[in-house]
Amino acid sequence: MRLITVRMFLTLDGVVQGLGRPDEDTRGGFRHGGWGPQYNDEVMGRELAKGMAKPGDMLFGRRTWQDFTTAWGNATDDNPFTTHMNAATKYVVSRTPENAHAWQNSILLRGDAVETVAELKAQTGNDLSINVSASLVRSLHVAGLIDHYTLLIHPLTLGGGARLFEGPAPLTEFELTGSVTTSKGVIIAHYARLT
């Protein structure tokens, strides 16, 4: 059975929307896009690189996959994140037909997210990671399919925007398995599911 690890960048008030750039995700009139890059530093880069140290496959919701395809799929720089992202097998969870060939090594998982991911998780293979696909994370969390969380908690509040958990989440306990604070005040906390 594969494990599923989630990596989420969020603010102190739980906002996960529009981390990278102003036009990334303006749904609901969100005007605070691009809040995250100012907090990048060597410590964060080193911690994120640890996730690339072992083989793994990736899970994406449709919207995040489309955004990442634009940002990473055509990049040819020497950035190790680019190399990792392009080489990994990428599973795209979507009910609508997509051009999975738009980004190399992408495979479309059509149908219900919980059912298709539960089937994939039950198979043998590389562990799976999810980066910033909040609605996919919410669905899989409710179904008890998330094994680990790495939360990058940024020292700011935005007062609005999509949050990691909107509405009730089931009672689930996690154990803190490690943490580090970056030079810019981001707390990177690693949690493993207990129940």
Rank of each mutant, 00 (worst) to 15 (best):
V16S: 08
G20V: 11
R21V: 12
R21D: 12
D23S: 14
D23M: 13
E24K: 05
T26N: 12
G29L: 12
G29P: 07
R31I: 12
Q38D: 12
G45F: 08
E47N: 07
A49M: 15
M52R: 11
K54Q: 13
P55C: 00
D57N: 14
D57F: 06
L59T: 04
L59I: 02
R63D: 01
T64S: 01
T64R: 04
Q66H: 00
Q66D: 01
T69A: 11
G73K: 06
N74T: 14
T76G: 11
N79P: 07
N79W: 10
F81H: 07
T83P: 10
M85K: 04
A88V: 08
T89F: 15
T89W: 07
K90Y: 01
K90R: 01
V92N: 07
V93Q: 00
S94F: 04
S94G: 08
P97C: 04
I107S: 01
L108W: 15
G111N: 12
A113Q: 05
V114I: 08
V117F: 11
S129N: 12
I130K: 05
I130G: 00
N131Q: 14
V132W: 03
S133L: 12
S135R: 13
L140I: 04
A143Y: 06
G144C: 11
I146R: 03
D147L: 09
D147F: 08
H148P: 01
L151N: 06
H154V: 15
P155K: 03
L156R: 10
